[in-house]
Amino acid sequence: MTCTLGEVKQRADFIVYWGGNPAECHPRHFTKYTIMQKSKFLPRGRKDRTMVLVDIRETKSAKAADIFMQVKPGKDFELITILRALIKHQHVGDDQIAETGVTREMLDDLVQRMKSCKFGCFFFGMGLSMTRGKHMNSAALLTLAAEMNAFTKFVAMPMRGHGNVTGADVIMRWQTGYPFGITFNRGYPRYNPGEFSTVDVLVRGDCDAAFIIGADPGATMPQPAIDHLKRIPTICLDPHITHTSKLARVHITTAAQGISAPGTAYRMDELPLPLKPALKSPYPTDEDVVRRINKAISEKPFWLPEGSQPQMITAQV
């Protein structure tokens, strides 16, 4: 259940930010896409829209919100699940509601507003997707949005972090069918997040080399993952010196994407935007480097011995 940001700008009269702090993390989100915009359908802009913020603490974003709901830490999943029950007129006890840190009155009001709006939108941030429960917290909100369509138009969208994460996701999907967490060890893509996702592979020490492009896992990943990166040959492509480039055996300095290297970036709603470089860089682009590496590899013997083919793993069931 998703849409492009333009849809939100044009139509969304009910916006919920869940576990995110757009005022500080995505400062242009309010003004450019969501609550501050006027449109043909919402001519009075901010006045025509209701904004709800759900978070574990009162951040700066709360000032911008019409309604602030403070959920107890680690209770997002429970709260969303309660909402799923309430929209279907299932009875949830007062004590159970109280455990999440909000009151029945607040939830009844929220449900009533959700059902009576014309176009509702959930944005969810790392406060939801990276806390206990992780992907299930996001799944909960996506499910709630899907179920809300029995009453009115509702969508949900993640607030993606920095860099062109969405772009990587989009391209992996069209080339392999999967967004991330993919292995090619049998010559075709297989998917299992938790097994093949980067952080899990590194933490378990399942790989014997690493090639890192457009990311700084040395700064963000758990210590066992960083330790493994230090143990194995790590190659890093980055315009800057980063935690990862410092621990890598090889750091290739590349041109900064969007500033001195062209390409396409995918916005958090998967809309592609052209990157038009303003400057020239003495360094090669990431693409150049990868193409040159590819070319060098293609001059080596093919990875499969002549005449052999890996076995497809599904073929046996």
């Binding site: 075709y188 893509p189 499969l304």
Partner: peptide, 14 residues
């Protein structure tokens, strides 16, 4: 589904 295993003339896919 049918997987396309990478060969020298063909890329992998599903």
């Amino acid at each position: 589904t049918q997987a396309f295993i990478r060969t020298q003339s063909r890329r992998s896919g599903l």
